[in-house]
Write a protein that binds this DNA or RNA. Structure first.
Lengths: 144, 144
DNA sequence: GTGATTGCAAATCTTTTGCACTAAA
DNA sequence: TTTAGTGCAAAAGATTTGCAATCAC
């Protein structure tokens, strides 16, 4: 029952958000969501589309990623200076970043216990708490 | 006794890190460190330099910010997609980001209690834990 | 002097945008 | 048809780099 219905799955996901199921969007949705939780950059996603034989322009990739992020279907993760990651896991969770490679891993929310938070600036409300564990491969030289 | 020795302060800080005290670097160090903890972008810092009557090219601003970050005198804070902040506070602490304005505030390390952390990926060691509280001004409309 | 530092302009990289063309409803 | 979506190429921003001129030692 579960799995093996990639087409209807992708189609439903688009319709649910009022997006026309075009050839490009269907392909991107499949690439994004048929493989479990992932973190992709626009560039990576275009590479995967090309590898899958789907021609999609970078502009459309960006448009789609932004539309999905606005709709709450993707989540943008900002951990590196010049580049945005898009996370297919939109539930409450955190991240481990391997600094030398840029690899990102999810950390389930309940694996991090935040038992105290500071007072917020007056007139503001909390939207989200991001915890990022920056790690290096053990043999890495910080100065290299 | 404290304060009012901006020149020697800046000079010492440069010498300590083996950087020649050029006119530009002395001016930037003063702008950065004579005013308590701050978060600046390269662009902002150039604006301040200009306002102070010091002509420094953007390339030199970037070079200096990067040299200082490498030396551990500044810390790079990555919380927004296209832009890097440089933090004069290099001690263990976290941040509040007001999403609508890009304003950053320090959160002392002891105002956040992390009582549990996940297992790290095999072969990695923890470099730093960043906690970012993303807040909005209360009247902000998330969809606007 | 000699090597480090600077500034400019050009280059790079990621992301966005304008607009004519195409496809979905 | 009518409107949304796509792709291209150009534009926009932030940051880096090559190289000749300048400065610190």
């Amino acid at each position: 029952m579960i799995g093996n219905r990639p087409f209807s799955h992708a189609l439903e996901r688009l319709k649910r958000h009022g997006l026309r199921p075009t050839r490009q969007r269907l392909a991107l949705v499949k690439l994004l969501f048929d493989r479990g939780d992932r973190h992709v950059t626009a560039d990576q996603l275009q590479g995967e589309a090309a590898a899958a034989g789907v021609r999609v322009s970078l502009a459309t990739i960006y448009n789609t990623l932004n539309q999905f992020t606005a709709a709450g279907v993707l989540r943008e993760v900002i951990v590196e200076a010049g580049r945005s990651y898009f996370d297919t896991n939109t539930s409450d969770h955190h991240h481990v970043l391997i600094e030398s490679t840029g690899e990102l891993f999810d950390v389930p929310a309940d694996h991090v216990k935040l038992t105290a938070l500071p007072a917020l600036p007056p007139g503001t409300s909390l939207r989200r708490v991001d915890v990022i564990l920056r790690v290096s491969r053990q043999q890495d030289n910080p100065a290299s």
